[in-house]
């Protein structure tokens, strides 16, 4: 299982980087979202998968899944959500002001 999830997050990383190298703002933002999905899956995998029950104390259960990566991912999900919403609004505002969402055209003067 770990092997498969790692491959999956590798694919997510590759597609994320490809999106980041594009010119339109929305593609770049989708790239960042893909990147955070990949990272979250990878953090979870690093704590081993499916080794026990959910980390909620229950009578009769001795084996729990590692709770620490879950806590880290939870924090990370919230933060990346905050960032995503911020850059989405930033993209919205940029497009409104400059009438374009193309990074090439947002570049400014070449001799600056």
């Amino acid at each position: 299982m770990e092997f498969l999830v790692i491959i999956l997050s590798g694919v997510l990383f590759a597609t994320a980087i490809y999106n980041l190298l594009q010119k339109q703002l929305l593609r770049i933002i989708i790239g960042t979202v893909l990147l955070s999905h990949g990272a979250h899956l990878m953090i979870l995998t690093m704590g081993k998968l499916k080794r026990g029950q959910p980390p909620v104390l229950t009578e009769g259960v001795t084996q729990y899944t590692d709770p620490l990566p879950q806590a880290l991912i939870l924090t990370s999900i919230v933060i990346s959500f905050g960032i995503t919403s911020l850059i989405l609004v930033l993209a919205y505002r940029t497009t409104q002001e400059n009438k374009t969402d193309n990074m090439e055209q947002l570049r400014g003067n070449s001799n600056e």
């Binding site: 770990e2 092997f3 790692i6 491959i7 997050s9 590798g10 694919v11 997510l12 990383f13 590759a14 597609t15 994320a16 980087i17 490809y18 190298l21 594009q22 990949g38 990878m42 995998t45 690093m46």
Partner: peptide, 21 residues
């Protein structure tokens, strides 16, 4: 170039994760 770079980055992440895991 974009394609090569993104595939290489994905592969390196995968390899590092596998090695670490």
């Amino acid at each position: 170039v974009n394609l090569i770079i993104s595939i290489l980055v994905g592969v390196i992440f995968t390899v590092v994760a596998l090695a670490v895991q």
